[in-house]
């Protein structure tokens, strides 16, 4: 009897201990999360708080002047912002009204505001000396030749690929090629792997990517290590990133363009000269760590010369032996 009591109380104690440790973990996790999101939100301008109160949520409320009641409506899912992504983006410090009409500061918004043309990227980025190095005007010219512009015209804006709310300058800031590739390909995949997004600009279904690229060996590896634009754009030396997206018939299908000593990847993906300086480990480390092995493109000076040396030595040894065999016959 006593034993079973002891056993029962021990069981109860264990359970309590487990529950309390579980609770403790939960508290820790909650604290961790809340600290993280607080830190991220701190980078946002407080003036945006009012806007984000509605525009980061699935629903919004307003005073219905017709029914005289407070109404709750669903937000357009395409316009719901992610606060964390916004805080990580290049425009995190901007006020909403820097790009959107200042008249939006009154709520409920005037419905006619929707008819006002939106600011475009070049309104700020064009003709500004600060951004001269990025050659936005040239990018625009290149883009106008692209299949995106040819098919969709003005409705294909910069923001279709470069989400103005979340955009990060990964190509310019990241020292890891893999991250640059992932970020770049995500821009294409947002529409090209999602029918509902794809059909915002096209009447057809999105093409089946893995089927179209069936000819490509190690497809998964290529998709992970090569940017889509490597084969689907015309490389322009003077631009960091080519914006002339070619029609599918003109996409590169020639393996040796990348798989050779003068690999096209060196001219495009690895052209970021500052990529090396960004790496903490210096030149050698960058090249080894960043360059996933590309057959044919990797030519190590020392290994090549060492192998040629051994090859010549072997042939020389054989030649001498042959001569001796002929002489001593």
């Amino acid at each position: 009897m006593l034993k079973s009591k002891i056993r029962a109380s021990a069981f109860l104690f264990n359970r309590l201990a487990m529950q309390s440790s579980f609770l403790f973990l939960l508290i820790l996790l909650f604290l961790g999360f809340s600290q993280k999101s607080q830190a991220q939100e701190k980078s946002l301008t407080p003036e945006n708080d009012k806007c984000l109160k509605c525009h980061t949520h699935q629903t919004f409320t307003f005073q219905n002047t017709l029914t005289k009641k407070e109404d709750k409506r669903m937000s357009n899912p395409l316009y719901i912002l992610d606060k964390n992504h916004f805080a990580a983006g290049v425009h995190a410090k901007f006020k909403c009204t820097d790009c959107h009409s200042s008249a939006y500061s009154t709520y409920p918004h005037n419905a006619e505001l929707k008819l006002e043309p939106l600011s475009t990227c070049l309104d700020c980025h064009g003709g500004d000396e600060k951004y001269a190095a990025y050659q936005f005007e040239k990018i625009e010219k290149e883009f106008q030749k692209s299949v995106h512009f040819q098919k969709s015209g003005e409705s294909f804006t910069c923001s279709k690929c470069h989400n103005q709310h979340y955009y990060q300058a990964k190509s310019r800031t990241s020292s890891v090629v893999g991250e640059i590739i992932g970020f770049s390909n995500e821009m294409c995949m947002t529409c090209h792997s999602n029918n509902s997004k794809f059909q915002l600009l096209s009447d057809t279904l999105k093409p089946a990517l893995s089927q179209i690229h069936g000819w490509l060996p190690n497809q998964e590896l290529h998709f992970k290590n090569v940017r889509c634009i490597e084969c689907h754009t015309q490389v322009v030396d003077s631009l960091s990133v080519s914006h002339n997206i070619l029609p599918k018939e003109k996409a590169l299908k020639n393996c040796v363009e990348c798989h050779s000593k003068n690999s096209m990847l060196v001219a495009s993906l690895y052209k970021y000269k500052n990529l090396q300086s960004r790496s903490e480990g210096g030149k050698l480390n960058t090249i080894i760590a960043n360059k996933s092995y590309v057959i044919g493109a990797y030519q190590n000076f020392w290994l090549n010369n060492f192998s040629i040396f051994i090859f010549i030595m072997a042939l020389a040894g054989i030649c001498i032996h042959v001569i001796l065999r002929i002489i001593k016959k």
């Binding site: 996933s292 990797y298 072997a314 054989i318």
Partner: peptide, 28 residues
């Protein structure tokens, strides 16, 4: 921090080279 594929490929190419040298001597 060194690509595993890179290391594997270098080892593969180096061993391949050594077998080619073996083949030349073997034939001779």
């Amino acid at each position: 921090s060194v690509s595993g594929i890179f290391l594997t490929a270098i080892l593969h190419a180096s061993l391949g080279f050594l077998v080619s040298i073996f083949l030349i001597i073997h034939l001779y």
